[in-house]
Amino acid sequence: MEAQTVHLFVLDTMSDWEPGYAIAGINQPVYQRNPGRYVVRTVGPTRDPVRTMGGITILPDVALDELRAEDSAMLILPGAASWDEGAHADAVDKAREFLAAGVPVAAICGATGALARAGMLNDRPHTSNAVEYLNWQDGYTGAEHYAGSPALRDGDLITASGTAPVDFARAIFERLELYAPEALDAWYALYKHNDPAGFYKLVELEQAASA
């Protein structure tokens, strides 16, 4: 089985922590329903290096204008200070293209603000850092659909608060059907609630899979 690609948009000032749980889980086959089903590749505004908020330099695998929805299983848009500066309209256009093609898009923190400015959240359930943050965005009129939860999945669109990387990852895992429900519940118990029972359950599931 050829692996499907999950694309992570990487950009200057990217909030390193926001996609971390998600991409690690996707790229790590342990506990997965179908190990190796997905791989993670980075896509940048161009192929030029970008530098994250944490000072990490990333060389993108592909440029945004090379990315096609039919070649992707999901597009992840992490937060970054540059979203609020009005940058990356082409990435928002790409997200719209993906959703129109039935390919999931997952946006967190500042990326939700960019989608809001483009009017993409006006008619569907969504969340973000706060409704006040979205109300600040020109083009946003969707406050009646704002949920206020840490993360929310509405069909092929996932939105999340920048303070909820674990919930963001869980929503992504659910949409990709990455883990069986029992494994996902254990993963969430461990990483969201620091519950040791989640760790022991994951170990049990790993041992059973390798038996």
Rank of each mutant, 00 (worst) to 15 (best):
A100Y: 01
D84Y: 13
A91K: 01
H88F: 13
D93I: 06
D84N: 15
V105S: 03
W83M: 14
L99E: 02
V103I: 10
V92I: 12
W83R: 10
W83P: 13
P104L: 02
K94W: 04
E97Q: 10
V105G: 01
K94N: 09
G86E: 14
V92H: 10
D84F: 10
R96T: 11
W83L: 10
G79L: 07
F98W: 06
A100P: 06
L75I: 12
V105C: 05
D93A: 10
A89D: 09
G102D: 00
G86I: 15
D90N: 08
V103D: 00
A81D: 09
E97R: 07
E85P: 06
S82L: 15
A81F: 09
A87Y: 12
F98C: 06
V105W: 01
E97T: 12
A89T: 09
G102Y: 00
V103K: 02
D84S: 15
H88V: 04
A81W: 09
A80C: 13
A91F: 02
A89G: 14
G86R: 14
A87D: 12
P104T: 01
V105F: 05
P104C: 01
A101Y: 02
L77H: 03
E97W: 04
A87H: 14
A101S: 08
A80M: 12
A89M: 06
W83Q: 11
